[in-house]
Structures are given as structure tokens and as C-alpha cells.
Computed example of a mutant assay.
Amino acid sequence: MTYVYPSKTLSITVESPPKEVYEYIFAVVHFPEWAPCFCKSIRQSGDDWLVEAPEGLVKVRFVERNEFGVLDHSVKLESGQEMMIPLRVIPNGRGSEVVFTLYQQPGVTDDMFAKDAGMVESDLRNLKTVLEGAGKKRL
């Protein structure tokens, strides 16, 4: 039996070109800067990235580099549970729309899901600040 998870799609407009936004996110070493709610530290291990996250040490693996703005990635928890995280950079005029879909996993209460969504929103705001603000000089 296939289960359909409740989901919430979150997005933010970033006044930076899609290619620049895509390349910044694809360079996973930037995670601690723009996604501190998810990533406290990161290091590479083979094809995976090991992220110190609130849930503990997780493995993150992105899809291959592509021209479509797709930044989907899998997150594997220490428990062995694996989730696919859809993430896209879509052209929006001269800027970009960053779109993140969050799925409510089994065992996650509505309150926990709302908290997770709030953390994603905070990280997306950080991304916008970095790419539009003083942090842009570091790209």
C-alpha cells in the first residue's frame, strides 16, 4: 500500500539570477551559512555529505547537477529512515523563486510538522538575506 504524506510547499523570492542561486545551494558547503536550523556543520564522506542536524548526524545526497534548477536531495537519518526533499530554483523575472516541499513523515505530529515548516521558512529567509545582502560578496 502506498501512503500519501501531508505536505506543505514553501517558497521565497530571491533577487538574484537563478543560475547564481542554484550554484550557491548546490555548493553544499554553504548549508551552515544559510540553513542553520537544519545544518550546524557539514563534511563530505564519499558521495554523501554528513550533516550535524537537530535529529543527529544525517547523510545528504543531491541529485546530479542539471540545467533545470532541480536540487532534490535525500536525507538519511541515523535510524535508517530516508526522505526525499524536493527543492527547486525557478526563474522569476530577473530573480528566482526557491521552492521547498516538506512532507509530514509518519509519527510526526501536526505541532512538530508546523515547527519543521517554521524552521524551513527561517532557513529560506536566511538564504534570501545571504544572496541579496552583504553575504553576496562571498559567492
Rank of each mutant, 00 (worst) to 15 (best):
A53I: 09
P54V: 11
E55S: 13
K59V: 05
V60R: 08
V60S: 04
V60I: 10
F62M: 12
F62H: 11
E64N: 12
R65P: 04
R65T: 07
N66V: 00
N66W: 01
N66L: 02
N66Q: 00
E67V: 12
F68D: 09
F68E: 10
G69A: 01
V70K: 03
L71R: 03
V75R: 02
V75L: 06
L77Y: 10
L77P: 00
E78R: 13
S79D: 05
G80R: 04
Q81V: 15
E82I: 00
M83D: 12
M83Q: 12
M83V: 14
M84W: 14
M84H: 09
I85N: 13
P86G: 11
P86D: 10
L87D: 10
L87P: 10
R88H: 15
R88V: 07
V89G: 15
I90P: 03
I90H: 03
P91H: 07
N92H: 13
G93A: 01
R94G: 09
R94E: 15
G95E: 03
G95D: 07
G95P: 02
S96N: 00
E97T: 15
E97Y: 06
V98C: 09
V98H: 11
V98G: 11
V99H: 11
V99L: 14
V99I: 14
F100S: 04
T101P: 04
T101F: 04
L102A: 12
L102Y: 04
L102M: 03
Y103P: 04
Y103L: 13
Q104E: 06
P106M: 06
D110A: 09
D111K: 08
M112G: 09
M112I: 10
F113M: 02
A114F: 04
A114P: 01
K115L: 13
A117V: 06
A117R: 02
G118Y: 00
